[in-house]
Amino acid sequence: MIGTDTITSHPREADDPGLTTSADGTAPAARTRLRVLTTALLLSALAAVMTFTLHRGDNHSAPGRLLLGYGIAWALFAAAVWTIRKVPARAATVLVLIGSAAIALAGLTAPPRTSDDMFRYAWDGRVQAAGISPGPSSTDCPGRAAGAPSC
């Protein structure tokens, strides 16, 4: 028969002494709350940095500010990824969903500043809706005027 002194309440407790208390005396629940709070703060800072970067920097007038903002954002993202590793799966899922929504909303607070492609796409759509091909005109491609399929 097995004695009660050899049975632990949870099989992982015998393998990981950090599950009971840490060196500083904090309980696992307190460490988990601290990790969740730290990750949430990092994600909040990331959303704030992205909002500020999107409003203040662009690749024409302030490329340095844009690159600095992106660098800080990547550092905050890396730190959030590092801290979320030890967060329980349910809390991590919630943090990832809320964090991704916050970043998406931050991206919607300002128009695109690094490319004007969307304006070209909108213009091409208007031209095509008017029944005109947005491709090269006959003046751009002399062969097209003679009925050639492409330049």
Rank of each mutant, 00 (worst) to 15 (best):
R35K: 03
S137N: 14
A80D: 03
H60L: 15
L34C: 04
L95H: 09
A130N: 03
G125T: 06
S133A: 05
G64V: 01
A110Q: 09
P88T: 02
W123H: 05
A75F: 13
I103Q: 15
R31H: 06
S133T: 00
R120P: 02
A145N: 00
R113H: 15
C141E: 08
L97Y: 04
L97G: 08
K86D: 15
V36K: 04
A91P: 07
R12G: 07
I84S: 05
A145Y: 01
L54E: 11
V81F: 08
G3N: 10
A80V: 14
A91K: 07
A75G: 12
T4M: 06
S150P: 00
I103D: 10
I7W: 03
G107R: 02
A78V: 04
L46M: 10
A23F: 06
G3R: 14
A78W: 09
V49G: 03
T39C: 15
H60F: 12
V94Y: 12
T53R: 00
V81A: 13
L54N: 15
A30G: 03
T93A: 09
M1S: 07
Y121Q: 07
V94P: 11
D140I: 02
A47Q: 02
W123P: 00
L41T: 11
R65M: 12
L66F: 05
G131M: 12
D15Q: 06
A102R: 15
A91I: 12
A30H: 07
S9K: 10
A129H: 07
A92L: 02
A102Q: 14
L68M: 14
V81E: 02
S100F: 09
R85S: 08
R113N: 14
F52E: 00
A129M: 05
T139G: 03
W123N: 04
D16S: 01
I103S: 14
L42G: 05
L108S: 08
T139F: 12
A102T: 15
L54I: 09
A75N: 05
A89Y: 13
T20P: 02
F52V: 05
P88H: 03
T93N: 06
M118G: 05
A23Q: 09
S22V: 12
F52T: 03
A130C: 00
P134K: 06
F77C: 08
A110Y: 11
S22D: 15
G71K: 07
T8D: 03
P88S: 03
R126N: 12
G135H: 12
P142F: 09
I132T: 10
I7D: 02
P88F: 01
P142L: 06
P142W: 10
P111F: 11
G99P: 08
F77W: 13
L68Q: 11
W74Q: 04
V49E: 11
T6W: 14
W74E: 06
G71H: 12
T109M: 06
L68Y: 09
G64W: 09
A62V: 05
L43E: 04
F77E: 12
A110C: 09
A14F: 08
V81K: 12
P88W: 01
T6P: 03
A130E: 04
L67M: 06
P136T: 01
D116V: 01
A92E: 04
I98Q: 00
A146Q: 10
G57T: 13
A110D: 11
R65D: 04
V127M: 06
S9Q: 08
A148S: 13
D24L: 02
D140F: 02
I103H: 14
I103W: 15
S138W: 14
P112E: 13
A23E: 14
D124A: 11
